[in-house]
């Protein structure tokens, strides 16, 4: 079987600070995501899962190791072509939208940036696709609810028509009922557009809903890579994963 990998990460180390103040947020992480696959990064706060995502997106300059996206090795700088392929959705829909741009501006800017044409029609369709409708087109972020904002953030990420979405806790800032809506939306979008997802979450339920495989992280290291199936059945090998599962089940009760 030769399914090409959308993302390959090998021996990725990411650090902040330098000299004696250097701290390694991610230590020699290795994983790969097949094209069209959905991969989760789980672990508690500070385990380095978001940092991996930011390193892939080119938002953290201090890293070593190898990262490959769609067969192309990544360097220090990301090309515009990279961002045409890979887009990111942030955790906080309140902070991640430009406060002074209408939805229309946010989306058209992203499209213009990547040289798309027929922007007017594209925006209308994109808003339909994320379940907002064109009535939201000329609103500002402060006029929207959290769920609506996250839909706009997803639409913005989809605007350049990428193949890969990096999702940084896309639902953790939202109400539970809204969380489900956004998760279903993400699942639908992935099916319709054949997207590859890498999603960070501390919520095993969310990962179980959206992903096929997941890396469990602790203190910057990947403890083990598991299938969602084995998470469900409890067939995991590491104590830490078992501990994480147990606390997830306990909090669900």
């Amino acid at each position: 079987m030769t399914v090409s990998n959308a993302i390959e990460v090998r021996d990725l180390t990411v650090w902040f600070g330098s000299g004696t103040e250097r701290s390694d947020a991610v230590k020699r992480a290795t994983f790969s995501v097949a094209e069209g696959g959905s991969f989760g990064l789980v672990g508690e706060s500070g385990s380095g899962k978001s940092t991996i995502l930011r390193a892939i997106a080119g938002l953290v300059p201090t890293w070593s190791g190898e990262m490959t996206v769609a067969g192309e090795p990544l360097g220090r700088k990301r090309s515009p072509a990279f961002y045409k392929k890979v887009q990111m959705v942030f955790q906080d829909p309140y902070g991640s939208l430009h406060p002074r741009q209408t939805v229309d501006r946010v989306l058209s800017e992203a499209m213009q940036l990547h040289g798309l044409t027929d922007i007017d029609r594209r925006i209308a369709r994109l808003l339909e696709d994320v379940g907002l409708g064109t009535g939201f087109r000329f609103r500002y972020p402060h006029q929207l609810s959290g769920g609506q904002r996250q839909r706009v953030a997803i639409a913005r990420a989809l605007a350049p028509e990428p193949k890969i979405l990096l999702l940084d806790e896309p639902t953790s800032a939202l109400d539970v009922s809204v969380q489900a809506e956004i998760l279903n939306l993400l699942a639908d979008l992935r099916r319709e557009r054949a997207l590859t997802y890498v999603m960070v979450s501390h919520d095993l339920g969310v990962v179980g809903h959206l992903c096929e495989r997941a890396a469990v992280m602790q203190q910057g290291e990947i403890v083990e890579v598991v299938t969602v199936e084995s998470l469900r059945t409890g067939a995991v090998t590491q104590d830490y994963t078992r501990h994480l599962l147990a606390s997830a089940i306990a909090s669900a009760r």
Binding site: F82, F90, S96, L97, L113
Partner: peptide, 13 residues
């Protein structure tokens, strides 16, 4: 330091 600036970079700007 705000998220939307990170988002602008992530958009490819």
């Amino acid at each position: 330091t705000q998220d939307f600036v990170q988002a602008l970079y992530a958009k490819g700007m």
